[in-house]
Design a protein around this nucleic acid. Structure first.
Lengths: 262, 262
DNA sequence: AAACGCCAAATTGTCGACAATTATCATTTT
DNA sequence: AAAATGATAATTGTCGACAATTTGGCGTTT
């Protein structure tokens, strides 16, 4: 009886969600042979997660426990537990006797989120620069190389996941357990939601160049520089996402008034 | 069937009713009888919380859902939900099909926790220095004054709660919602557990002097200084707690070996 | 028309029972 | 004796039903 090597028992590794996402509206349990069979709540958790991140459950919309449970062919118990976990991941907001809603995407929350993320990942860089192991560094450089060649080939498909992986590995290398839990267990899912729904295809080109410089700084054990570069890198991402979010909300507002007029 | 009166909702207002004078933020709602009935899970949550923080449920010990539920005269459903919330607060560690344990207090986790806290509260100070409102500042200064006079009178009772309130108010003044949630919803309960079980009576004298300087820096809108002072202040607290924790564990180890010999 | 109060419907909270999994311990095996 | 094995007990996961609370509509009132 031997358990997996991931550090976080609470969560899935982000790279695993890439292709598991294309199967909504079905009962899960069979087709096993997967190592899964953990618990029903955990299984539907990742499904609801991706539904929210992709916007299939629209931001701000009400979530009905019964309907969700029926959709996945299970009872309300596990559904409820999944919802509470989603609350911890900030993808859902719950109120007693009122129910759960998908988190709303607002500019001010985006700024709060990125401001916090910036500080935390800056910290992660500083720690990683002094504590990263040769193996971890090699893995990070490999990932970077893969992304760079993919970019050169115009392969934009796994860009998003690759970026998540990049930050993920640095966070892991920081070695601070509570920092890891805060970022990965608490902030990263909401972050992915913002980025998925406010994505900008042009950005990756520059982003990967920034990644390279960050990795170089870490390799040289220059934590201060790595932290600075990371904070700038994240600020770039924030600006980008903010612009897209603003126009997205402008569109929504326009559509709203149109509907009201008719 | 079941009734208890020491109930404040999920995690707002960390200080108890001890010195309500220092926290006039409460809406007037609390005076209208008890209107307590939010939800059973929330009610027992705070009870288990304090049991854990005080060590009545020893660090590292197993938690039996059934037994807990019976102890409070409720069913396993709400108990389970409370446990999941406690997991988010890092007071409990859960594993599928295995159950829940009270978090363990270790030196390395303590250091991780304080390292993270230091960064986050430094950030809070910087934000607070630029965004605190006159009312919030006045409240903060009032709190400080109360603590100072209490200290002058040798009144050491509410020291602990007062300190929590101090940090709490600064975090509130930062205005960053995600930062607040991370610190208060995620880290602060575990912090209180460490401090309660590794307390040092001598420290408050110096701590309050440090508080004063931090408040002054904030009042002068000097975020950089406030952040620096706060990080030093927290580092002092870490050292203190670490020493106590080490000797506490040494005692436990000694008792262990003694038991094994006999 | 807007606001208020009341009743019905929908939704969430709680419970007890059962199923699935893990932990315990006596027994056997090396 | 230590380790592996297998049956049994204890504990966690899941379900369906019921209770408590909120939501939405409807008629009345101002």
């Amino acid at each position: 009886m031997l358990k997996q090597e991931t550090i976080f028992p609470t969560d899935d590794t982000p790279s695993s969600v890439a292709h598991a996402a294309t199967s909504p509206t079905n009962k899960v349990k069979s087709l096993a042979s997967e190592k899964s069979s953990t618990t029903l709540a955990d299984q539907i958790l990742v499904q609801i997660q991706t539904s929210i991140i992709k916007g299939e459950l629209p931001a701000g919309s009400k979530i009905n426990e019964q309907a969700l449970a029926e959709k996945y062919g299970i009872s309300r118990g596990p559904t409820r537990e999944a919802l509470q976990t989603l609350e911890r991941q900030r993808l859902v907001v719950r109120a007693p006797h009122v129910g759960a809603r998908v988190a709303q995407l607002t500019v001010s929350e985006l700024n709060d989120l990125y401001q916090l993320r910036s500080v935390l990942e800056g910290m992660a860089c500083e720690l990683a620069a002094s504590r990263i192991t040769p193996e971890q560094l090699a893995k990070l450089q490999d990932l970077l190389a893969v992304q760079e060649t993919a970019l050169a080939n115009g392969d934009t498909y796994f860009q998003e996941e690759g970026d998540v992986d990049f930050h993920y590995q640095i966070i892991q290398a920081s070695g601070n357990k509570h920092l890891q839990e805060t970022l990965i267990g608490g902030l990263y899912h909401l972050l992915r939601m913002y980025r998925y729904q406010c994505t900008n295809k042009n950005r990756p080109v520059k982003a990967i160049a920034e990644h390279r410089r960050i990795v170089e700084a870490i390799a040289q054990r220059d934590g201060e520089l790595a932290s600075l570069l990371m904070r700038r890198h994240i600020e770039q991402g924030r600006k980008n996402t903010e612009l897209r979010l603003i126009e997205l909300q402008a569109n929504a507002a326009a559509k709203e008034t149109l509907a009201n007029i008719s």
